[in-house]
């Protein structure tokens, strides 16, 4: 998997499969674990955002959140297909036939939609996080992760612009919009910390052993804080400090509403296995 995407170095699925089969210093299962995290983040957030279609404050926003959810589905499909290749599972196997402890999304992605302000604050945090992540993952030594990131980063940049514009509108809008967005910041921000935690998979396996497959989450905190701080400053909102949620999503520990989300997302595939339309 040492081949990087460069001008003139075409990489075909056959070559990737060959390199995966080669083994050697490569531990595909750990790369798959990492891809699974990123895929779960995108898929679960997409499922949450889909709820807003026909419920957002204005029709343009129905379309915006629906479009963002569609981009995220695309990212999830790529990551989950790649992850599943290590275990002989399809994207659908991973999406529909895993139980709660097997999911690896960070908890912020699964947080309840709340009111529109909560959804926007969650979107604000994760789109700025994903932009920093993907803009570095394009240099991953794993060419498939790098390719998915190169595609995703352009889309996430647009999501980032969308959420930043809303933070400004809500922060500088009416007394009520400002009150609500500040409450949402207080509620959502404790879950931001988990996004930037390193762990054994990242440190020992993906960076030390596999020479920079993953992006070290701790390195993203500073650029994230800087950009997010600038938007919040301009929106005249306070940067939340203090409370930090315990997290654990990467280890399969999830929040209260997650089981209900999974039930809704998985019920059709489980009740009618192999259903098509």
């Amino acid at each position: 998997m040492s081949q990087k995407i460069t001008m003139g170095a075409a990489l075909t699925p056959e070559k990737i499969a060959e390199q995966l089969a080669d083994g050697g210093a490569v531990a595909p299962a750990s790369v798959a674990e990492y891809a699974l995290r990123l895929g779960d983040d995108a898929l679960i957030l997409s499922q949450r955002l889909g709820w807003w279609i026909a419920r957002a404050p204005e029709i343009e926003e129905d379309i915006a959140l629906g479009n963002i959810a569609l981009d995220l589905i695309g990212h999830a499909r790529s990551f989950l297909t790649y992850a599943g290749s290590a275990w002989g599972k399809s994207e659908d196997d991973l999406a529909y036939f895993r139980d709660e402890p097997d999911w690896r999304c960070a908890q912020i992605f699964e947080l309840a939609n709340g009111d529109f302000a909560h959804t926007i604050v969650r979107q604000f945090a994760v789109s700025f996080f994903q932009f920093e992540l993907y803009s570095r993952l394009v240099d991953s030594s794993d060419p498939v992760l790098a390719a998915i990131a190169a595609k995703a980063v352009k889309e996430v940049d647009y999501h980032r612009d969308h959420s930043a514009q809303w933070m400004l509108r809500l922060g500088q809008g009416t007394e009520e919009s400002r009150r609500r967005v500040q409450v949402a910041l207080t509620d959502v921000w404790p879950y931001v910390d988990e996004l930037f935690r390193d762990d054994g998979l990242i440190d020992d396996v993906l960076i030390d052993d596999l020479d920079g497959v993953a992006v070290r989450p701790t390195t993203l905190r500073e650029p994230f804080d800087e950009l997010v701080g600038r938007v919040l400053g301009q929106a005249d909102l306070e940067v939340p400090t203090g409370a930090v949620a315990r997290g654990g999503g990467r280890d399969g520990v999830h929040t209260g509403g997650f089981g209900v989300l999974l039930a809704e997302m998985q019920v059709l595939a489980r009740q009618y296995p192999g259903a098509t339309w």
Partner: peptide, 16 residues
């Protein structure tokens, strides 16, 4: 994501 007949395949190409 149900019934995707042809799952996404991956390859990277260099230039247009």
């Amino acid at each position: 994501m149900i019934a995707v007949a042809n799952p996404v395949e991956f390859s990277a190409e260099s230039v247009a």
